[in-house]
C-alpha cells in the first residue's frame, strides 16, 4: 500500500479486505441463503414426503395414523395401483425413446452443420413453445386430435380415413378418437417434452471436438462407424440428461393424462386423487416415492453401464 498511514481506507474497502482474508466466511455468506432454501424447501419436503409414506390412513376414522409401518406400501403394491405405476412407467419410457429418436437428428444438424444464423433460428423454434402456457398448448392439442380436429380432417382429405380408423382400432392404445387414446396422449407428451431432449443432446454434441470425428475418419472409420463408436458414446450423457427430463416429467405429469386419453389413471392423477378426494396423504406420498426410486435406479444402471465415463 502506498500513501501515508493517516489516510485510512474507506469502510467499504476495509470490508472487502476483511472478506478477502477470510475466504471461508465469504463462502458461508455466499451460500447460506441458497443452501437454506435447498435444505428447507427441497430436501425438507422430500424427507417429509418419505416419512408420510410410512404413515397410514385409518380407514374407519379417515385420520392419518402417525406410526411407522409398511401398510401404505402394501396398499401401493395391490394390482390396481401397480397397473397405474406400470402404465405410467411404460408411457414415460416410450415417450423418452421417441423424444430421443426425434431430437438427435435435429440436435446433430444444429451442432454440426447449421450456419450461425440457421442455428439461432432453430434454437428459437425449439424454445418459443416453452414461452406459452403449457395448459393452453395441451388443450390446443385436444382440439387438434379431436374427432372433428385437423388430423382427422387431413386423413379424410387424403382418403386415408380407414388407416386412422385401423390405428384407433388397435386394442389398449386405440380409442374412439386420437384425443381419447393413449396414442394421442403419447403424441402430446412427445410434443411437450421434446425441447427438454433437444437442448441437452445438442449441448453434448457441441462438446465433441471436430478433430475426434476427423481422427476416426483418418483411421479408416466410415461415417457410420464413426457415429456408433465415437459420436454416440460421447453424447450418451446428453441423451441420459434429456431422458431424465422427459422420463421424470412424464412420470409426474398430471395435466396431460387428465385432458387427453381415456381417463385411466397415471401416477400424477393417482397422487391428486389420493391426497384430494380420498384424503389418503400417505398413499399419495407412496405414489410419489415411486418415480424417485425409478429415477434413482435408472441413474445407477446408466452409471454402471459407463454412460458418464466420457464426462
Amino acid at each position: 500500500m502506498t500513501g501515508d498511514a493517516s489516510s485510512r481506507p474507506s469502510w467499504w474497502r476495509r470490508v472487502a479486505i476483511y472478506l478477502y482474508q477470510r475466504p471461508n466466511l465469504s463462502l458461508v455468506l455466499l451460500l447460506a441463503l441458497p443452501l437454506l432454501w435447498l435444505a428447507v424447501f427441497y430436501l425438507g419436503a422430500l424427507v417429509s414426503l418419505l416419512i408420510q409414506s410410512f404413515f397410514k390412513l385409518d380407514g374407519f376414522t379417515g385420520r392419518i395414523v402417525r406410526q411407522f409401518g409398511l401398510e401404505t406400501y402394501q396398499q401401493l403394491f395391490t394390482a390396481a395401483n401397480m397397473d397405474v405405476v406400470y402404465r405410467t412407467v411404460i408411457m414415460a419410457a416410450v415417450v423418452s425413446v421417441a423424444c430421443a429418436v426425434l431430437a438427435f437428428p435435429l440436435a446433430y444438424f444444429m451442432a454440426r452443420y447449421a450456419s450461425y444464423r440457421v442455428r439461432g433460428i432453430l434454437y428459437l423454434a425449439v424454445l418459443i413453445p416453452l414461452w406459452s402456457s403449457y395448459l393452453v398448448r395441451v388443450y390446443t392439442w385436444k382440439i387438434i386430435l379431436a374427432q372433428e380436429g385437423i388430423i382427422t380432417w387431413f386423413f379424410n382429405v387424403l382418403g386415408l380415413k380407414p388407416v386412422l380408423d385401423a390405428i384407433l382400432a388397435i386394442p389398449l392404445i386405440g380409442g374412439s378418437s386420437l384425443s381419447f387414446s393413449f396414442i394421442g396422449m403419447f403424441l402430446v407428451f412427445v410434443y411437450i417434452w421434446l425441447p427438454y431432449m433437444i437442448l441437452p443432446i445438442n449441448a453434448a454434441l457441441e462438446r465433441v471436438p471436430k478433430s475426434l470425428i476427423e481422427a476416426s475418419s483418418d483411421l479408416g472409420g466410415r461415417p457410420n462407424y464413426t457415429f456408433w463408436r465415437v459420436i454416440l458414446p460421447l453424447t450418451v450423457p446428453g441423451i441420459i440428461a434429456g431422458s431424465i427430463f422427459t422420463f421424470s416429467l412424464t412420470l409426474g405429469d398430471y395435466i396431460i393424462p387428465s385432458v387427453i386419453g381415456n381417463s385411466s389413471f397415471f401416477i400424477g392423477r393417482a397422487v391428486f386423487a389420493q391426497q384430494g378426494t380420498a384424503g389418503n396423504i400417505p398413499l399419495a406420498a407412496a405414489f410419489t416415492v415411486v418415480p424417485m426410486v425409478i429415477m434413482g435406479v435408472y441413474l445407477v444402471v446408466a452409471k454402471r453401464l459407463g454412460a458418464f465415463d466420457a464426462l
Binding site: 471436438p209 478433430s211 476427423e214 481422427a215 476416426s216 483411421l219 460421447l234 465415463d309
Partner: peptide
C-alpha cells in the same frame, strides 16, 4: 495416410 493431430484427438471414452 494417418494423422497425428495438434490436440492429439484421443478418444476420451
Amino acid at each position: 495416410v494417418n494423422t497425428v493431430f495438434q490436440d492429439y484427438a484421443l478418444f476420451p471414452h
